[in-house]
């Protein structure tokens, strides 16, 4: 077993056979790595679902119910995305005006006030990132479901990107919290948080849970097994 695995060492494999550079999967070699701590066990019947000898987490060759869970979180996020953008996340009231800001409205205000750079940051973090994340997850889910071999490396990279940007969408939620605390001059000027902020926070959390539930190894699994 060990001799075989060593023969498949990454560098050697690429040096010796550049045409067949593809390393074997743990599943094919009969190895079962622990998702939680990286400990590598030798797979045996009944080991799926058993506890990792090192960290006691349940061992799984693939995340259980990955596609179904990801779809569930993703659909919930998509539904909440509507109120997140339609409802105001912030209500500003001053002596002269009263304003309900949606996310896009907030970006517009920043843009009009001349801070195009921040308008761009908020636009990317609050509008582009959640939207692209949801589209990316749909692409990943559909292609994994069909066991597609289409652009695997690109899809793997897409997944890493989705994981990396996940938390940055929380930006607007923090901005609202700070403005509510800071702009608090009773009658002169006051900022209150709107219900859109709750929906938006939920969208961010749900898309993060969706990307965590997705198992990127499904991208590489071969159709018939």
């Amino acid at each position: 077993m060990s001799a075989r695995a060593e023969a498949f060492d990454g560098r050697q494999a690429s040096d010796a056979a550049p045409a067949a550079a593809e390393p074997p999967s743990a599943l094919a070699l009969g190895l079962l790595p622990c998702d939680a701590c990286g400990f590598v066990c030798r797979d045996a019947p009944g080991l799926e679902g058993a506890s990792c000898p090192r960290c006691e987490a349940p061992l799984h060759a693939r995340k259980p119910d990955s596609l179904r869970r990801t779809w569930a979180f993703l659909i919930a996020a998509m539904l909440l995305y509507v109120p997140a953008n339609a409802l105001p996340i912030m209500q500003t009231s001053t002596l002269v005006y009263n304003e309900n800001d949606t996310i896009l409205g907030g970006v517009r205000v920043l843009w009009l006030s001349g801070s195009w750079d921040l308008a761009l940051i908020v636009f990317i973090a609050s509008i582009c990132v959640p939207l692209l994340k949801m589209v990316a997850l749909v692409v990943l889910l559909l292609s994994a479901q069909r066991r597609s071999r289409w652009r695997r490396r690109g899809r793997a990279r897409l997944y890493r990107l989705v994981e990396f940007v996940g938390q940055w969408s929380m930006l607007d939620v923090f901005v609202v919290a700070l403005l509510v605390a800071l702009v608090n001059f009773q009658s002169i000027a006051e900022v209150r948080a709107g219900p859109g902020a709750i929906a938006f926070g939920a969208v961010v959390v749900l898309t993060m849970l969706a990307s965590m539930s997705f198992d990127p190894r499904l991208i590489w699994d071969e159709p018939e097994r």
Binding site: F8, S25, A26, W220
Partner: peptide, 9 residues
């Protein structure tokens, strides 16, 4: 084992 694609090194 690569966490993202299950390749063994």
């Amino acid at each position: 084992v690569c966490e993202h694609c299950d390749a063994v090194y």
